[in-house]
Structures are given as structure tokens and as C-alpha cells.
Design a protein around this nucleic acid. Structure first.
Lengths: 147, 147
DNA sequence: AGTTAAAATGAGAATTATTCTCTTTTGAGA
DNA sequence: TCTCAAAAGAGAATAATTCTCATTTTAACT
């Protein structure tokens, strides 16, 4: 994902292109997984030492509003963000803060079919996200160093 | 759920029975849905005006540790708690902070069967929670005043 | 290229939820 | 009843996020 692609991503969403926004969106594509605001600040400060904290939060809000990224629900009091926009699910390690993505079209299909049969009265579903909570067995664990 | 039942709930979990803990657990059964620490504080202060904030947080942590309640993942920076311990899912209104419960044995079954077929390598599933995100249509909405 | 208005940024203060510290009190078993 | 570890209380401390407002920048329009 180069700078030009990032610019056009921003433009597509009707966002003004600023160096700060480019840096932050770039951070998403370079940081492994589900970063916190702080992860992003730390990352971008390497090359842009004077982007302010407030800006990062404001940009993140803007990105969330336009659907460029989404917030990840967690049990902790730090917000995490996700730049994957296609339907996917999350694996939450219960012995660390690691969150991994889980994408499987079959699961999506299964859920869609289920809710076609079982309507929730007066409710329109916009998204379905499965939280898969559990733990990785030792060995594999070392490979999952997402925070 | 009377005071005696609440006492024995606490004892079952090996927790010391204190008036504060009784009040807080009682609050869960009287407050509608997925309260925040603040909702609980507000509620219990009516009858126990001098329970401190720190105590409420400490008690909530204790309850979470012993599985009496669980934290609910949200996109906001307030923690919400849930006293339902059986497997269930959550309906998140995207236009309010309302979270409703969704319980259906068939869905649980469907998910279990799916993951029996599709194992996640080196991962042991402890819980599956579906986030059903969307919005209630007007009319019904007035009935869903969970914050 | 220059002008302009609206939007974005930066710096730091402010706020909010939560946690910590430390002293006092209390529950529950001996 | 006594004892002591655990729990509670008060308020300070912390951490993440939001706010304020003066300054700068973007992008559309000459």
C-alpha cells in the first residue's frame, strides 16, 4: 500500500488529504493487528515526531465515521482499531491482549442463513461479528505476539 | 432473587459475604441490562449512600474473577457488566448504547457444530459470543431504553 | 498561481473512568 | 469471644480520551 493508494483511499471517502491522515492510515497497514491509539502514535512519531495526540484521536474518529476503520470491542479500557473492512471475526486470547482475525466465508454464510430463518423482531442487522474466546496452546503462542 | 439467595450465591463462589457485595449483586438483578460501574453506584447509593467507588470496582473485579458476572465488550470507554452466566449473545444497537441479550440454543448448537468441523489450529475455544449489530425500527425502539 | 472559507492541526488543559495507597473495619473460623 | 486475613473507605493518582481555541492547511474557485 503506497502513498498514492492511501491518498485515493482518503479521497474516496471524501476526506481531506493531510500528511497526518496519510501517516495514520499508513500505520494501520504496517502495524500488525488491531492497534491502540497509542500504538499508532508511537509508530508515526518515528517519522512524524510532531503529530499531536489530539490529532490522532480526531483522525481515528474521522476514519471510524467514514468506515475506513472500525473500533474493536474489548474488555479493556483501551480502544483498539481495525482497518479490515470486510466481514470477519475476532479470536480473543483470554490470557493476553492478543486479538487475531478470523475470516471464513462459510461461517458468514451460516450466520446469514440462520438469521434469514430467525428474524429478530423489528431489528435490522447491519453486521455480525463472532467473538471467539479461548487460548492458544504453547508453541503456537510465541507466534502470536499481537501485543 | 432475595437476600438469602444472594448470600448463598456469594458463598458458593467462596466470596466473603459483605453488605456491599450483597447490595452490588442485588443491583445486578434489579437493574435492567448490562450496567456500568456508574449505574451500579448510582443504584446502590440510594440505600447505601456510603459505599465507596473503589469498593464497587473491587467487588466487580472479584465478581468477574469468580465468574459471577462478566465484562461486556463494547466500543465505548466505559466497562459494562453482565450477570447472566449462561451462553448468550448480544444485540448492539448502533444508534444508542443499548445492548440486549439474545439467547437461542439453536444458534449455540450451530456454532458448536461449525467449530467441531473447523478447528482453529492450536486453539482451544472457551466461549463464543456473537455480536449482532444493527438497529431497532421506530416504535419498538421506545421499548428499548437500556441506556 | 493567488484567494478564500471551511476544515484540520497542535498544544496543553480538562475530563472521565478506573486503579492505587494506606488506614480502618469487618466477616468467619478457631 | 478472639484473631487475622480479607474487605472497605477516602481520596489521591493514573491513563485514555476529549476539549478548547489559536494557527495552519487543504481544496475549490478565480
Amino acid at each position: 500500500m503506497n502513498a498514492e493508494e492511501i491518498r485515493s483511499r482518503l479521497k474516496e471517502k471524501g476526506l481531506k488529504v493531510t500528511p497526518q491522515r496519510i501517516a495514520i492510515l499508513e500505520a494501520f497497514y504496517n502495524l500488525n493487528n488491531h492497534p491502540t491509539a497509542d500504538n499508532i502514535i508511537e509508530y508515526i512519531r518515528k517519522n512524524h515526531p510532531n503529530i499531536s495526540t489530539a490529532t490522532v484521536y480526531k483522525v481515528l474518529d474521522a476514519f471510524v465515521s467514514c468506515g475506513l476503520v472500525s473500533r474493536v470491542k474489548t474488555e479493556r479500557d483501551v480502544m483498539r482499531y481495525d482497518a479490515i473492512t470486510e466481514t470477519h471475526h475476532h479470536i480473543y486470547c483470554s490470557d493476553s491482549d492478543c486479538i487475531e482475525d478470523y475470516t471464513d466465508q462459510e461461517l458468514n454464510q451460516l450466520l446469514m442463513e440462520y438469521f434469514e430463518r430467525k428474524q429478530i423482531p423489528d431489528f435490522t442487522i447491519e453486521d455480525l461479528k463472532l467473538q471467539i474466546i479461548g487460548r492458544f496452546r504453547r508453541g503456537k503462542e510465541a507466534l502470536n505476539t499481537d501485543r
